[in-house]
């Protein structure tokens, strides 16, 4: 067996995904309330509070600028949380994965199912913000619907990266490092709250090496009535992060659990 075998992709991830969906459905009402509640608070507090000070950014009212940013950051946060705290709980505390491994499922199926589930939850929460933004009149036209598949891909990307952290974690405390060292900087550097042009070139260059800015670059135009540019490039970066994340996470988890 080679040290870094590629993950074997298979539709057997579906029962794993469905298991998580089934649990989510049991607590659907509070989940959905949370999906709507938090972004509404963000939008209102930042948008009205900050927006008054900032005014318009170029052509865009600050609220419109912010709404598209929050859709993307919410996808990142939701997928990261699910890929770390929730997946770790199922792996380590609840032994849910051990149960699945007693069935004809491989660890690869479980990891893929968990990451796609993280992406699904990202879609739920970012989708909820999209709805809120539409109700508040912050969306230009139906092109915004095209943001949904991009969000799903972004959720996959961030879920896969989070799964690497889960694979090396010995306790919940460890996740804080990842949030402090990766997620929060990405949030601040990727044009969610203010345009990237405000940053020094070196910092902007770093931001371009990370996935979130590429998500924002596609989603923001789509929500504000324009066509994004350089879509293949942006999608490739997101996809590469996702696939590398999946590969590394699967290899590390095999080493951790199948020893």
């Amino acid at each position: 067996m080679s040290a870094f075998p590629l993950p074997r992709l298979s539709l057997r991830f579906i029962p794993v995904w469905r298991r998580n969906l089934r649990v989510w459905r049991k607590i659907m009402v509070p989940s959905i309330m949370g999906n709507f509640g938090e972004p509404v608070l963000y939008l209102l507090a930042f948008g009205y509070g900050f927006g008054r000070l900032v005014g318009d950014l170029g052509e865009l009212p600050y609220m419109v600028f912010l709404a598209s940013g929050i859709v993307c950051s919410s996808a990142m946060y939701t997928a990261s949380f699910e890929g770390m705290y929730s997946a770790y709980t199922r792996m380590s505390e609840q032994k849910t994965w051990d149960g699945m491994l007693g069935a004809p499922l491989n660890l690869d199926d479980i990891v893929l199912g968990e990451i796609i589930w993280a992406a699904t939850k990202a879609l739920f929460s970012a989708g909820a913000i999209l709805v809120v933004a539409a109700v508040l009149g912050l969306i230009s036209d139906l092109r915004a619907l095209l943001a949904l598949p991009v969000i799903l891909l972004a959720g996959f990307c961030f879920g896969a990266c989070a799964m690497i952290v889960t694979a090396v974690s010995r306790s919940y405390d460890f996740f804080l490092y990842y949030f402090t060292l990766a997620v929060t900087p990405m949030l601040l550097l990727s044009g969610v709250f203010f345009p990237l042009e405000q940053l020094p070139t070196a910092v902007a260059a770093l931001a371009w090496a990370l996935p979130l800015v590429h998500v924002v670059e596609i989603v923001r135009p789509l929500m504000t009535g324009a066509w994004p540019s350089q879509v293949p490039l942006h999608l490739s970066v997101i996809l590469v992060y996702g696939l590398v994340g999946l590969t590394v996470a699967t290899a590390l988890l095999r080493r951790r659990l199948m020893r």
């Binding site: 609840q94 032994k95 051990d98 149960g99 007693g102």
Partner: peptide
């Protein structure tokens, strides 16, 4: 079929 040494029943269900 497998009965593991320590139960792996799913506490979410």
């Amino acid at each position: 079929g497998i009965v593991p040494q320590f139960d792996t029943l799913d506490p979410d269900f």
